[in-house]
């Protein structure tokens, strides 16, 4: 098997010894009827139970299975990133290892991808989780993420997603960004569709999420905004951020000096704080200039991202545009509007 498979399914596992074998069978049962070449990339995220042993046995038995092993637990994003790095398929599907996603949905993802999308995300429209601790915070977070990043996906937390391999392999993934992969990918302006997927309640093992992540999500959003919109223009971004400083600083300074026009003397606190705020603006702009330097020295060039999604069309092929119609079940989030 030397040529690249059509499809790679990346599944990270962390302490899922009861689920991994089931997951394997469910995936094989779902993928074989699709009649495409595929590989399963299982990532063992430093599990302390028998997950790695079970996965290893599978990989040694079945040539379609590959196991990527971590030495310790790094977390879900590094696990996904490693799986994506090692995947060889032209389309990469990521999903959870806890059987909450249904592998039978994969066919629909592939059909949607085939209509010209770069990313297809799942939407767990009847989510099997607790309402207060999981669903409501997630709904607020998704709304906020959509507002800030401009990629209004209803369910960022759903791991079941499909990506065009050469796009996702070039998007830097690190830390805890897996929830924001479509947002991160938006730096390349991909065509994104959203489809409804089935969602099952967890059968075995424990859930690994808690609710104590709100402030992290907020700060991460700020990071995403900075990265996706202003990587190449940090000076502009920092200037925008220091705008309130300029406004309040000027007001305070003017008010302080105006005080001196009458019989009173110049107001020291007002003038002083005005000057402090204006001085801070200068350092903010300095930070922005520093950012320009950082961008120049780094290896990210925003121009390289346009190449990931561009589609060249010579006049002879204009009729290929008719492929770009969405299947009935997919909602276009952004992309082929034709």
């Amino acid at each position: 098997m030397s040529s690249a498979p059509d499809l790679s399914v990346v599944v990270p596992f962390y302490n899922e010894e009861q689920n991994i074998e089931r997951m394997y069978h469910a995936l094989i049962d779902a993928l074989v009827p699709l009649d495409r070449s595929f590989e399963l990339v299982f990532v063992d995220d430093g599990s302390r139970d028998r997950t790695a042993a079970v996965a290893k046995a599978l990989a040694e038995r079945d040539s379609r299975v590959r196991l990527v092993k971590f030495r310790r637990n790094y977390g879900q994003t590094p696990a996904m990133a490693a799986g994506i790095e090692c995947a060889r398929g032209r389309v990469i599907i990521t999903m959870d290892g806890d059987l909450q996603n249904d592998p039978t949905d994969i066919g629909l993802f592939l059909d949607t991808m085939a209509t010209g999308y770069d990313i297809v995300v799942g939407w767990r429209h009847n989510r099997q989780d607790k309402l207060v601790s999981r669903k409501i915070p997630s709904r607020i977070a998704n709304w906020l993420i959509g507002k800030v990043t401009g990629v209004p996906i209803r369910d960022n937390g759903c791991s079941l997603k499909a990506y065009r391999a050469d796009l996702i392999k070039h998007i830097p993934l690190y830390s805890e960004m897996h929830r924001f992969i479509p947002a991160m990918a938006s730096i390349a302006g991909p065509r994104i569709a959203e489809i409804k997927v089935k969602h099952h309640a967890r059968q075995f093992g424990k859930s690994k999420y808690g609710i104590s992540r709100t402030y992290k999500v907020l700060l991460d959003l700020m990071v995403i905004k900075t990265i996706t919109r202003f990587t190449s223009r940090p000076l502009l971004w920092f200037s925008l951020l220091s705008l309130p400083l300029v406004v309040f600083g000027t007001i305070a300074l003017v008010a302080g000096l105006m005080n001196g026009l009458g019989a009173h003397s110049i107001s020291l606190p007002l003038t002083g704080s005005g000057l402090i705020l204006l001085a801070a603006t200068v350092t903010m702009i300095g930070a922005g200039a520093f950012g320009e330097l950082v961008y120049r020295l780094g290896d990210i060039r925003e121009g390289q991202f346009s190449r990931l999604t561009e589609r060249f069309m010579a006049s002879a092929e204009t009729n290929s545009i008719e492929h770009l119609t969405s299947p009935a079940l997919a909602t276009s989030v952004r992309g082929p509007a034709q």
């Binding site: 990989a59 299975v65 590959r66 490693a82």
Partner: peptide
């Protein structure tokens, strides 16, 4: 991250 090994 560091990949310890790839089993196939």
């Amino acid at each position: 991250y560091q990949i310890a090994e790839v089993v196939e």
